[in-house]
Write a protein that binds this DNA or RNA. Structure first.
Length: 270
DNA sequence: ATGGTGGATGTTCCA
């Protein structure tokens, strides 16, 4: 049985309507079979239906709202919407969509998440957004922990947490900064350990810096290089032997009117 | 030590 490649990309696009054209550049660079987007910022009734098919992605599942959040999955392969997850934290805020991807070697379950950013103050008493972020992670962890026997599953997205020392430009300076605080990194690790491995760190040793996001609030992101790895690809352990390569499309941070996040892509041979 | 930029929205929110 010959193996088939499956390339899955994830990108926080920070407005789908504003950056629809940049998806051409993403496809040219990564040639993905499936594209998972976060922060689409478009209500479902205004979703740009013509865009994805024109790009070569006729299969689309999305969940959006006015102004904020929003996720979408664009695919060359047929998709089935899996609508079994809860309304996380009961907020109805469009931070997750899941599908079954019909690959040549059978179905693969795919989850696309946009975890709350969590505000500025890392204290749930002073900052409800931080509490929401921790609650969201705990709820997701419990939900996946209850799904015993999960396999052939990929989880991607902007998880808004840089879990490892070398996922940030300065571990010491960011320990008190939302995205790298111990309650967040411990929570994210516990979620991952419900049944996933970190696909990017499968390719890149923990001792090497990896970033996927650089703040807009720097005149020259490349010179300062104060990045964080907020965007992730996890796979269930049965898919570990299928992990073939990864790409962090760092050059995308220089695209005209680009996102503050860059696309991340993983190729599997299934 | 603080503000820096960007998107959607509507004169402010969220990141």
């Amino acid at each position: 049985m010959p193996k088939h490649s499956l390339r899955v990309a994830t990108w926080n696009i920070n407005s789908l309507r504003l950056r629809l054209g940049l998806l051409n550049d993403l496809v040219a660079a990564l040639d993905p079979d499936v594209i998972c987007l976060q922060e689409t910022k478009v209500p479902d009734e205004l979703f740009p239906h013509d865009g994805p098919p024109a790009l070569g992605y006729p299969h689309v599942v999305y969940r959006g709202m006015k102004g904020y959040n929003g996720v979408a999955i664009l695919s060359r392969l047929p998709l089935k919407h899996i609508d079994i997850a809860p309304d996380w934290c009961g907020k109805g805020d469009c931070r997750h969509v899941a599908v079954e991807v019909e690959t040549k070697s059978g179905p693969v379950e795919l989850h696309d998440f946009y975890v709350p950013a969590g505000g500025d103050v890392p204290d749930r008493e002073q900052n409800v957004k931080y509490g929401h972020k921790l609650d969201f992670i705990a709820e997701a962890r419990a939900w996946f922990a209850a799904r015993t026997g999960l396999d052939r599953t990929i989880l991607v997205g902007d998880l808004n947490i840089a879990p490892l020392e070398h996922d940030v430009w300065s571990h010491k300076q960011l320990l008190g900064v939302v995205s790298h605080t111990p309650p967040e990194t411990e929570g994210l690790n516990a979620w991952m350990k419900t049944g996933f491995v970190d696909a990017i760190r499968h390719f890149v040793p923990d001792t090497e810096k990896v970033y996927t996001w650089w703040s807009y609030r720097n005149r020259d992101w490349k010179v300062a290089n104060r990045g964080r790895r907020l965007d992730h690809v996890w796979v269930t352990p049965d898919l570990k032997p299928a992990l073939h390569k990864h790409t962090i499309l760092t050059e995308a941070r220089d695209w005209t009117k680009g996102s503050d996040h860059v696309p991340v892509c993983v190729e599997l041979r299934l």
